[in-house]
Amino acid sequence: MNGAFAPFRQAVRRDLLLAARHKTEVITALFFFVIVVNLLPLGIGPDQDLLRKIAPGALWIGALLATLLGLQRLFAPDHQDGTLEQMALSPQPFTLLIAGKIMAHWLVSGLPVVMVAPLLGVQFDLPGRSLAILTLSLLLGTPILSLIGAVGAALTLGVRGSGVLLSLLILPLYIPALIFGAGAVEADLAGLGIEGHFSLLGALLLACIVFAPWVTTVALRVALE
């Protein structure tokens, strides 16, 4: 364990330390999530039944947008100051270093979202069981968002208007995660059982863990050329 995954842990440790020196950025993404989700009832109206119905979708969309916010800075600073070059030239597997960066991104932007999700769910008057299912679906789903997002961030690295472009490339690819994640709560309320949704979400996560860091590395090498 110590040997093969050492570069992965090194990259996670470094990015977490950097995030700790930049606390405002972390808090901004979380605050963005909270405020977006809270704006929805203001736009739709305070009808409790309706809000309960849209809560899973609202929280999931909030999580998508909050992830996008952090993705723009996933590789850009390291690209600017040459760190990414050094990582590409490291004798350690570049893919593992990049996987570490993606993991750190999830810990900083995805995990806090998962942790405040139950609180926001209460605001939408979700019952306890739905709350638990929603949080679990976000716990499984937000890493998918970080992993797929990393591919987009690598493709748009150093490109004109990369922020908007990133959203255009990545949001369509988020649709399966959104459907299975937000759908789990509704399926449960409809009495359909949630096993299907969760196993598909899990399969998606596994596929992303295997392929996304590798594709990201290929895209980063293209960007560095």
């Binding site: 090194q10 440790r13 470094r14 330390l17 100051d81 760190t83 050094q86 990582m87």
Partner: peptide
Amino acid sequence: LYLGHQGALKEELTPLENLTLGLGMEG
């Protein structure tokens, strides 16, 4: 060992952290 134009230094880290973390990622 390649030293490029850019510093590969993080402004928010100390020189010591920059060195140990940077070399750490190279094993």
